[in-house]
Design a binder for these strands. Structure first.
Lengths: 198, 198
DNA sequence: GCCGTTTCTTGTTCCAGTTCAATGTACCCG
DNA sequence: CGGGTACATTGAACTGGAACAAGAAACGGC
């Protein structure tokens, strides 16, 4: 029961970054292998080198770290059609500081570092696509940095709702709180306040 | 009174990223133009596209943004021998959300986007060096993200002292506070507490 | 060497968000 | 269908850091 259109969606997603011939596209997609993870299963642990990029076909991943006080902070979610990886670790082959975890039962198409290098050699256009990916990831992280530092919890939660409209009813509030940067208890109070106010 | 060894230091810095022949190195450095900025002068304003990379020969820059409440938050400092730019804006030619400002009278070696493209065409190895720069910048931003979200103000201030040892006595505390993410008043109290405690 | 502008300190009050604790809800699984 | 484990809500007490205010140093410029 592999999602039937998973590979087609991956081809489409890479096609939006860089135009590929049908043959190139097929070769790129074929470099990926399907993998499935249970809820709470880890794809990556802090301390390991991130050796993959994962395209989410179905389900949802989160990338998070554990802070000095032992709390977990979610940096990004990756629902359907998003990629998840620690690109800094992936590109520089250095130990990651992050965990990547399945929030729900999740199916991904995964490509390993070595395979990607091999494809780069065969399809130089992919290098460009990857450079764009890294750059866009940098932008996304800058935005997130600004958001977390400048906005109140309420604004930050509203931003979450806009950025991940499919996730709100679907994942536990605990995780949303860890993305917004507050405790679950306070998120609960926030929500109560917001619905009273509205 | 241009700093005599500025260009030599730039050549050395790029050489650490990627090995270049003497001729290539000279060509790279010659693509840069010297510029000087007064204290508080802006190299980049939010809303503009960042069209340069600046290598700091002498003095210090900071890259910061202004949050919703009107406070300024410093993301990075760039003292001597560091680069400063909004790479997301530079690479994607999109409006920046940041300001780049001289903290002191500062001399930089600056290269424009168009010139850099030109050099990429002539010296393909530079593309690789630049890719590394973007990747390292991503790492640095991840670290900063983790730091700001996980550490208390006190730890964050201690980190600043380690990361920028040359800056502590040299720039106003207001700026350090804006890097640590607290008010100058509170930093003052922190310092008092830390020196009493130690 | 003096004056205005920055910068630094210290105190008080106040608020967003935490912590702890208790109770409520729900859903998954045997 | 019943009971356990997750998850969500609510409340009371607390705290890190902000806001405001006022004074004390420390300059750079003429």
């Amino acid at each position: 029961m592999e999602q039937p259109d998973g590979r087609a969606r991956l081809a489409e997603a890479i096609g939006r970054l860089v135009p590929l011939t049908a043959a190139e596209s097929a070769r790129f997609v074929d470099g990926h292998v399907t993998a499935r993870y249970e809820k709470k299963e880890l794809l990556l642990q802090a301390g390991e080198v991130c050796d993959f990029e994962a395209f989410v076909v179905k389900g949802c991943l989160r990338i998070y770290f554990i802070d000095e006080a032992g709390r977990t902070v979610t940096m990004f979610f990756a629902p359907e059609n998003w990629w998840a990886a620690d690109l800094a670790s992936f590109t520089q082959r250095m130990p990651s500081r992050f965990f990547i975890e399945a929030v729900e039962p999740t199916e991904v198409l995964m490509i390993r570092y070595a395979k990607k290098e091999e494809l780069f050699a065969g399809i130089p256009k992919l290098e460009r696509a990857f450079r764009l990916t890294v750059q866009r990831h940098l932008s996304a992280l800058q935005d997130r940095f600004i958001q977390v530092l400048s906005a109140t919890a309420e604004v930050c939660y509203a931003d979450f709702l806009v950025k991940y409209p499919t996730l709100s009813g679907r994942i536990p509030q605990t995780l949303i709180a860890s993305y917004v940067g507050i405790t679950p208890e306070f998120l609960s109070k926030l929500r109560a306040r917001m619905s009273r106010g509205a």
